[in-house]
Computed example of a mutant assay.
Amino acid sequence: MKDFFELIASLFEDVLFVPFDAIRELELSSWFAANGLNFIFILIGAVAFVYWMLQLKKFNDNNEEDRSVKAHVFLGKNAKY
């Protein structure tokens, strides 16, 4: 059983964490290069946010949402019909 857990530890340390080790080494020479992946994720998130807001505006301008009180009765216990 001990060999099984050592195999799992070896898998993570020697194989799966190699990219993170490379990024850690790169960070000593260039902070911007090491954090490039974070910048890419931030850019993807910003683009997705803008796209989502434009889609919401399009649906809002077309009045496609049911804004009656009955449609949102689940929002509160004291909602009146």
Rank of each mutant, 00 (worst) to 15 (best):
M1D: 15
K2P: 02
K2Q: 10
K2E: 14
D3Q: 13
D3P: 09
F4G: 04
F4R: 08
F4Y: 11
F4M: 13
F5T: 11
F5P: 02
E6D: 14
E6T: 03
E6N: 05
L7H: 12
L7N: 01
L7V: 01
I8R: 10
I8K: 12
A9G: 03
L11P: 03
F12M: 15
F12Y: 10
F12V: 04
F12C: 10
E13V: 01
E13M: 05
E13N: 06
D14Y: 10
D14M: 04
D14H: 02
V15S: 05
V15Y: 15
V15C: 12
V15N: 06
L16N: 02
F17R: 09
F17H: 05
V18Y: 07
V18R: 02
P19T: 06
P19R: 15
F20G: 01
D21K: 14
D21G: 06
A22W: 14
I23D: 13
R24H: 10
R24L: 09
R24E: 11
E25Q: 14
E25F: 13
E25D: 08
L26S: 09
E27R: 08
S29N: 14
S29Q: 14
S30H: 13
S30D: 15
S30A: 10
W31P: 01
F32P: 02
A33T: 06
A33K: 14
A34E: 08
N35H: 13
N35Q: 14
N35T: 06
G36P: 02
L37Q: 08
N38A: 10
N38E: 12
F39L: 12
F39T: 00
F39C: 05
F39S: 05
F39G: 05
I40D: 12
I42G: 04
I42Y: 13
I42C: 12
L43C: 11
I44H: 07
I44E: 15
G45E: 10
A46P: 00
A48Y: 13
F49M: 15
V50N: 11
V50P: 13
V50H: 03
W52D: 08
W52A: 05
W52Q: 10
M53A: 06
L54F: 14
L54M: 11
L54Y: 13
L54I: 00
L54N: 12
Q55T: 01
Q55P: 05
L56Q: 04
K57H: 01
K58G: 07
K58R: 09
K58A: 15
F59N: 12
F59W: 07
N63Y: 11
N63A: 12
E65H: 05
E65Y: 01
E65C: 03
E65K: 08
D66V: 01
D66Y: 06
D66S: 03
R67Y: 09
R67H: 07
S68D: 09
S68A: 09
S68N: 03
K70N: 07
K70D: 03
K70E: 08
K70T: 00
A71K: 04
A71D: 05
A71G: 05
V73N: 08
V73I: 01
V73K: 09
F74N: 08
F74R: 00
F74H: 07
L75D: 08
L75Q: 13
G76I: 01
K77S: 06
N78A: 07
A79Q: 04
A79V: 06
A79F: 01
K80M: 12
K80C: 04
Y81T: 00
Y81D: 15
Y81F: 04
Y81R: 00
Y81W: 07
Y81G: 02
